[in-house]
Design a protein around this nucleic acid. Structure first.
Length: 927
RNA sequence: GCAGGAGUAGCGAAGCGGUCAAACGUGCUGGCUUCAGGGGUCAGUGGCUUAGUGCCUUCGGGGGUUCGAAUCCUCCCUCCUGCACCA
């Protein structure tokens, strides 16, 4: 039976909307749960990644709602950014119109999928009422000195016509357009994220429910390393320059110094000397290299001597200073002390330019020769050629030398981070205007709070060259808030990552006339479960953490971390590759929804694999989820519900009850762990169990159906509602109570037994299959073997089969005993055979066994220990009195075991005979 | 190079020290269904087999720990992901 999924979906989506089913209201009496998905950039159409992301979130939100939590589950749009502007350049459309029409498109698709968002709280970052607060926050940060402007060598993307943050440069290319990034000197705005480097690093430990991978990536990005700054005097100029090292133990091995080509001191030093021209040539060469060439592996290091020398303070040695491409301005101090003997890069450079190599650490029990080594020795060892530190372990020397340098004021212990301040200026139109005014008299001025927001002009010209804001007179020309004189507005806009760094706070009170309402935010925050792609592991997630801490320090909110749990969902693949337009393997979710309905799309995308792993999109798979839903639909639809009445449950009903209860338990646990694929597998098992259950009028069957329909809600909400209505459920299943379970009703032992019964019946059925397939062959065979007439064969076999069925339980009980038990029994039996008939306790038996068979003492002990442990653990599986009997009658061990084993053997052979002789199921014969 | 993750039937994916390898789904083979090459349903799907939930083999490969390993340790191979001239 197939349902009209389209009609059902529309019907329930309309009802949910009308009755405001998913609106969230603060209620301090009720426990809250905040589920959030990374909000999308409104490109217009949803792609499979979105569908996956939201299906995961919606399942959890619905589950938590049914579990009685006050759930906040909002959706919004990260609506500022380049694509809108690019569209404007290309198509002469207004970015605002373009963006908002795309938001509408996207929203209608999201609604079609039946996600339970509180649409009342929805907003876009392009809303004035949102970016106003971006500006407000900027000003607060400014006052706190968390924002500053400086001239810096920045990453410039020519294609995007803007500056990029360090985090947005990937392998020397722009993260968005893959254009090669250039370096440019510009005055730019920065956020002082480095102030929080330590806290951002340390608090990673608090994030117990974040994937290790993400935490690690952030840790590497922050890149904290402990080391020593060492000062050197330049011989010719008497200037003091500083270098950073993590290996102060090698300080006696320094043979030259390397400066980054961009280092500001260099130019000064070579000015007017013979080296100036050489340096210019070298710099030109370095500039020609793209970032990729410069960072590619195995590249030869190049450098030049610049005619200056320095004195190594620890030993007074005079060495040359070089400029080389392998030193970078970005890290440390931009100058490196070179120890060729103990650093591979220095080694290669020294070899190339014939610079001395001086060994100061020797491996234990070996002696290195500076002339002969062909690579640097970078490990720990024993100090040599290091004055008073000789003979010391290099690890200890590290500490000692640092202390020594500090004492002599030749250096100091420092901490270095890879993390740089966050560059937020963008030379773009479609972003939040930075609320700053430049006055010639008064300098940099903030736009007064009451004049916020600084609005983006409605009209602008998009030529693709430069920032359109620059050309809008009305926007640029303004007056100084202080002196009222003529002044100019800042035309840079903010990086859109600024917008997404606090949007989760805005959802708490989206209409607030403040950045957010403290009371609401205190109730809803932190986000309990955040879901999104791994691509944001560093950028967005680190910025959001930084904002939360900065906002805390503005005394606006008390929390340290915004996201309690994080799930990074895997990619959706097609034919083993990420879906992309260039590969032409993009599957449009719209088609699937059109073809099979929203529920199918959701169930498939969740069931195909674990949310965190990649999933392969497979058309066939979607069809199968469709079948699964149909199965449930017909299961409910085909059967008539009977009024419930109390009665003793028969064994089959008890079994179904046990299964239902067990599945409720498992499903709940799995959803909590967000192992949604497994949760759906459980529901499939329940569906199968219900379908196979014959007494479709039993109340137990209908209880099962009811639970199934409720548990279906997080995954296939429309069908769940429809069926809920059909079976006479009250209200919405979306607001129904999540099924509870009673542990005592779960009877694993009985379920196992049933499995065996089924198995035997299946065996019999199978043989009947064979018969119907080849009746002649079978009868011929039987006649041959028994040389009896067919009639009598059938009669005889009927009797046997009946007997078999009656005794089923008994036999099965024996077979249910797990294998290890038989191994144990066998083992004990073997041991006992050597013993005489003495009365011994269970534990005694073990001792005796060991005595008799010392060689296998541990083996026996192991078996018995495991047995006892298992017997205790599994007492629901094996009757306790079985253990008791074993204990009580241990004196009779030998007899009993042999008897028991004989019984088993006998029964086995009886069954064997029965199966051999009679493969027919009586019921079939009777007919 | 460094760091992290993964490798289980034809495929996706469970299992994470002993009940028990392969739940759940799909694919393939066959039966049933007034059965359309569709849908539904039942069975089979590592090898041997006396046909017995019998024996053997098997969780990327080699070693090891253990009475017992897909599971823990170790080395190697393959793939993925992140970072990378970081001093």
């Amino acid at each position: 039976m197939e349902a009209d999924y389209k009609k059902i979906s529309e019907k329930w989506q309309k009802k949910w909307k009308q009755e405001k089913v998913f609106e969230a209201k603060m209620n301090s009496e009720k426990k809250k749960y905040y589920v959030l998905e990374m909000f999308p950039y409104p490109s217009g159409k949803l792609h499979m990644g979105h569908v996956r992301n939201y299906s995961i979130g919606d399942s959890l939100a619905r589950y938590k709602r049914m579990k009685g939590f006050n759930v906040l589950y909002p959706m919004g749009y990260d609506a500022l950014g380049l694509p809108a502007e690019n569209a404007a350049i290309k198509g002469k459309v207004n970015p605002k119109e373009w963006t908002y029409s795309r938001i509408d498109e996207m929203k209608s698709q999201q609604e079609m999928l039946g996600f339970s968002y509180d649409w009342n709280r929805s907003f876009a970052t392009a809303d004035e009422s949102y970016y106003k607060w971006n500006q407000w926050l900027f000003e607060k940060f400014f006052e706190k000195k968390l924002v500053y402007k400086k001239k810096a060598s920045v990453n410039w993307c020519d294609d995007c016509g803007t500056v990029l943050a360090n985090e947005q440069v990937e392998n020397g290319k722009c993260w968005r357009c893959k254009n090669i990034v250039q370096e440019k000197e510009l005055e730019q705005w920065f956020l002082k994220i480095t102030d929080y480097a330590d806290e951002l690093l340390e608090d990673l430990d608090k994030l117990k429910d974040w994937p290790e991978r993400v935490k690690l990536m952030q840790k590497n990005w922050i890149g904290k390393s402990f080391g020593t700054e060492i000062y050197f005097k330049v011989k010719e100029t008497k200037e003091i320059i500083s270098t950073f090292t993590t290996r102060p133990d090698t300080v006696f091995g320094i043979t030259y110094l390397v400066f980054a080509p961009e280092h500001p001191k260099i130019r000064k030093w070579v000015k007017g000397t013979e080296y100036e021209k050489k340096l210019d040539e070298f710099l030109a060469e370095v500039k020609k290299q793209t970032a990729i060439e410069r960072t590619s592996e195995g590249i030869e290091k190049k450098g030049i001597f610049i005619g200056k020398h320095f004195i190594n303070p620890v030993n007074g040695e005079e060495c040359k200073i070089f400029v080389a491409d392998y030193a970078v301005m970005d890290y440390g101090t931009g100058a490196v002390m070179a120890v060729p003997a103990h650093d591979q890069r220095d080694f290669l450079f020294a070899k190339k330019y014939k610079l001395p190599v001086k060994i100061v650490i020797q491996p234990k029990g070996k002696e290195l020769d500076a002339e002969k080594i062909n690579k640097a020795f970078v490990e720990k060892g024993i100090m040599v050629n290091s004055d008073k530190f000789n003979g010391m372990n290099s690890l200890d020397a590290m500490e000692k030398i640092s202390d020594f340098l500090e004492k002599q004021k030749w250096g100091k212990k420092t901490v270095n981070y890879k993390l740089r301040d966050w560059l937020i200026s963008r030379q773009r139109f479609w972003g939040t205007p930075i609320p700053v005014i430049y006055c010639e008299k008064c300098g940099i001025q903030l736009v007064p709070e009451k004049e916020l927001p600084v609005r983006l002009p409605e009209k602008a010209e998009f030529t693709g060259k430069g920032n359109p804001l620059n050309k809008i007179k009305d926007f640029v020309e303004t007056s100084c808030p202080k002196c009222k004189g003529k002044a100019k507005r800042e035309t840079d806009t903010m990086d859109t990552f600024f917008d997404s760094s606090w949007y989760f706070l805005r959802y708490c009170s989206p209409k607030a006339n403040s950045v957010f309402e403290k009371k609401e935010a205190e109730y809803w925050m932190p986000v309990n479960q955040y879901i999104g792609g791994i691509e944001h592991a560093i950028l967005h997630l680190m910025y959001a953490r930084f904002f939360t801490k900065a906002i805390r320090d503005l005394k606006l909110l008390k929390i340290d971390e915004p996201f309690e749990k994080l799930l990074t969902q895997g990619m959706v693949l097609k034919d083993g590759k990420a879906m992309s337009k260039s590969l032409g393997n993009v599957v449009d979710p719209g088609e699937i929804i059109e073809k099979f309905g929203a529920d199918t799309a959701r169930v498939f995308i969740l069931s195909a694999s674990n949310p965190e792993s990649e999933m392969e999109w497979d058309e066939k798979g979607a069809e199968n989820s469709f079948k699964f839903l149909n199965k449930i639909f017909s299961l409910v639809g085909d059967n008539k519900k009977k009024a419930e009445h109390k009665k003793e449950l028969n064994s089959k009903e008890k079994l179904l009850q046990s299964k239902t209860q067990r599945i409720i338990k498992n499903t709940s646990e799995l959803i909590e762990k967000l192992e949604l694929n497994k949760a759906i597998a459980e529901l499939m098992q329940l569906t199968n169990a219900l379908q196979k259950f014959e007494e479709k009028e039993s109340p137990v069957f209908w209880i099962g159906i009811e639970k199934l329909v409720l548990m279906l809600n997080p995954f296939a909400p429309h069908l769940s509602e429809e069926l809920w209505e059909k079976i006479g459920g009250k209200g919405f299943s979306s607001l129904g109570k999540w099924p509870e379970f009673e542990e005592k009703k779960i009877d694993l032992k009985a379920e196992k037994q049933e499995e065996f019964i089924e198995r035997i019946q299946k065996d019999i059925l199978h043989i009947t299959d064979l018969i119907s397939e080849q009746p002649k062959k079978f009868i011929e065979k039987m006649q041959k073997e028994t040389s009896a007439p067919i009639d009598s064969i059938i009669k005889q076999q009927t009797k046997l089969a009946e007997k078999m069925q009656k005794e089923e339980i008994k036999r099965i009980k024996i077979f249910t005993a797990p294998k290890w038990k038989w191994i144990l029994l066998k083992k004990l039996f073997e041991v006992k055979e050597k013993n005489e008939n003495k009365r011994i306790e269970f534990g005694e038996a073990m001792k005796k066994a060991i005595e008799f068979d010392k060689q296998h003492a541990q083996e026996i002990k192991g078996f018995v220990m495991a047995a006892v442990k298992k017997l205790n653990e599994m007492n629901e599986f094996i009757e306790l009195n079985e253990i008791k009997t074993l204990k009580e009658n241990s004196g009779e061990l030998q007899k009993e075991f042999s008897a028991e084993i004989q019984v088993i053997e006998a029964e086995k052979s009886e069954e064997k005979k029965a199966l051999n002789a009679f493969p027919l199921k009586p019921a079939i014969l009777v007919e």
